[in-house]
Design a protein around this nucleic acid. Structure first.
Lengths: 367, 367
DNA sequence: CGGCATCAGGTTAGCGCTATCACCAAAAGC
DNA sequence: GCTTTTGGTGATAGCGCTAACCTGATGCCG
């Protein structure tokens, strides 16, 4: 019964061609169309389309017929065509700087929320490079995604211009302050969080507290965290020693380890390190052990993000829980809200929103 | 000069409607079309389309005019429409079981190769759940991706049926043996690798060697690795003690830690553990430290994958380098080869290929 | 029993591109 | 000098689906 479905015309010859109705593969493989399902179910194409909607918009008896035909043919709707016709692709994209730990729970919860709303979630990785981010944003806009979540800081002017012109629902994650072009933002008071870490270290009797962060040039998050560290020192009346701060070259454990090595060369007397990410902090702890320093006895180490490794490693890391999951949930909800409205309502009509999630200091063994 | 571009008709009224040619937003935001660029450049739409190809297929003088108009308008081609018209989306999808370490380098190299061929690379995460994998494959096929890379084992019959019917270029990563429906596969002799790990531990004088792996039910890779472990024991004439083997409930460090705890409860005398992944192995090492065991003095630990944490942690992990990067490169190349041919050549015409990459045992501090 | 909602489903006309062919010069061959 | 090749460009017809409209059948009221 499959062969009768394959009846399909090729592109109609422009002038005086012979009508060929032979069932064959013009090129590549014949893929079923809605028309094939409709013929089998004895209804029109439009009815199949309506039956495929959520919720189905046809009578129960019709729905049953269509479902049967769907099953029998194994039809997969062509969402490319659907996207063109409806100008909604049902895809939301995220641009992340790196495939790794701290983003996983956020992405997971975003994906869950979006799937429930029958949106698909796709990822692009920018490697903290604003030009790669620009290329990704361009690609996603060209594919007419219904929303974009930006995880990294550091957008090029071109990126911003494209996003403005496209007026796509947009949410910036880990925003420190709302940039004007950003439509929505989910943020956490990172600066304050870093300050709390310093307070905690001070309360534990540490006075020679160093800092290891990412590059402040491209990374807004890194800037906020070092500012919080400085706030904490200032509050206690301690002087800021630039030589007690170090930038990791990349956001991997090795980067943290290397940064600690450089730092200790200059300031061997440090008794605590405030680190801008758990991954880096893990590297710092490993490097400390490698040098025969005990953590936390000789050196207290605190991280940031509450990534999986923070709970799992030994000693477990003191860190700041940034509400990673909740952040993903909220971001997805904000995107969906805009995506569902953007058909009729001008985006500018809904003002920018900034959603602050708070944070929690989690004290563990490393301090 | 922008206002003159906005001239755009809405869906033509079916009967007796007033022709409105007012520049306005019918719904949502007006997005530029190729026609707008063409008008500005004083050429036809088709010429713009040709100028946008790589390489451009128009005369140099025309190309310059089109480029100027492109620049002036900030036009972003609609790849949804392009995909429908050409039946090629220029997208390759990967289904990964988990956002984490061991896959990152492979994904990175795949993405690089694909980008160079001007394909986009998108990710879906299945969480080791065959049903989620099925849903992802269905979604990707519905979006008519030009190729799929499958990272996890455990495909449902429906998944296989869909992939067969769609006849999309496909590559299975970390395949242990070619399943018949798989078009191409990139594999590493994991079983042999695991056996080599056991040989190494035996050479170090260990005799009471335990094993910690993932669930063998859904994960083909896990099965191969435990088989290699058993081969190694058998080769040395050592008995297989089922109580010295444990399955981690999930592929995170916590899973490894918990598995070691269970294992030591039954067999406290173990002097070495062969672990099926570096992430799990890191958890095992942390748990050993937590229990006051020194690694490697009291307990030698070997991992698998050569993930970043294996080099960075202290003690650094002995592991098997699975050629993660090369695997991604080869997989992408195989996909591209099929994708470029699938237009005219029947997929069945090009036989299944299996590309074996080998492996290397990397001995570090943990053994 | 006519009139007017209401609803299910069909009909039509695109969505914004690209494949394909038609066409027209200019270059090349006999 | 005329046909053949080119190489560049334009006109046209879809790709497979959905929005918007339209029809026809039903129900319900006065």
């Amino acid at each position: 019964m499959n062969s009768m479905l394959r009846q399909r015309r090729r592109r109609k010859p422009q002038k005086g061609g012979i009508e060929d109705t032979v069932a064959s593969k013009p090129n590549g493989v014949p893929v079923l169309r809605m028309e094939d399902v409709a013929r089998l179910a004895g209804v029109s194409v439009m009815t199949v389309s309506r039956a495929l909607r959520t919720p189905p918009a046809v009578a129960a008896s019709t729905l049953a017929k269509v479902r049967a035909a769907l099953e029998e043919t194994g039809y997969l709707p062509n969402l490319v065509a659907s996207g063109l016709a409806s100008s909604r692709t049902q895809v939301v994209a995220a641009v992340i700087p790196l495939i790794s730990q701290p983003f996983a729970p956020t992405l997971q919860s975003m994906s869950d929320v979006l799937r429930r709303a029958s949106y698909q979630f796709v990822l692009g990785v920018s490697h903290y490079d604003p030009l790669q981010e620009e290329a990704l944003v361009r690609a996603f806009l060209s594919r007419r995604v219904d929303g974009i979540a930006l995880f990294a800081g550091g957008h090029t002017p071109q990126t911003i211009a494209m996003l403005e012109q496209a007026a796509v629902p947009l949410v910036e994650m880990w925003a420190e302050s709302a940039t004007e072009f950003i439509v929505d933002a989910v943020c956490v008071p990172q600066r304050q969080g870093a300050q709390d870490v310093v307070r905690h270290l001070l309360a534990r009797g540490r006075r020679r507290i160093g800092f290891i962060g990412g590059s402040t040039r491209h990374n807004i998050r890194a800037q906020a965290r070092i500012s919080g560290y400085l706030d904490g020192l200032a509050e206690a009346g301690l002087p800021h020693d630039p030589a007690a701060c170090e930038e990791a070259t990349h956001f991997l454990m090795e980067g943290g380890a290397a940064a600690l090595a450089r730092l200790l060369e200059r300031r061997p007397q440090l008794d605590a390190i405030c680190v801008a990410s758990d991954i880096l902090a893990a590297g710092v702890v490993f490097e400390a052990h490698r040098r025969g320093l005990s953590v936390p006895r000789d050196l207290a180490v605190a991280g940031f993000d509450d990534a999986e490794i923070a709970r799992s490693m030994y000693p477990a890391l003191t860190t700041i829980d940034m509400r990673a999951e909740e952040m993903g949930t909220r971001a997805a909800e904000m995107l969906l809200e805009r995506a569902s409205q953007s058909i009729r309502v001008d985006l500018a009509a809904m003002p920018s929103r900034m959603h602050d999630l708070g944070y929690t200091l989690i004290v563990r063994e490393s301090t």
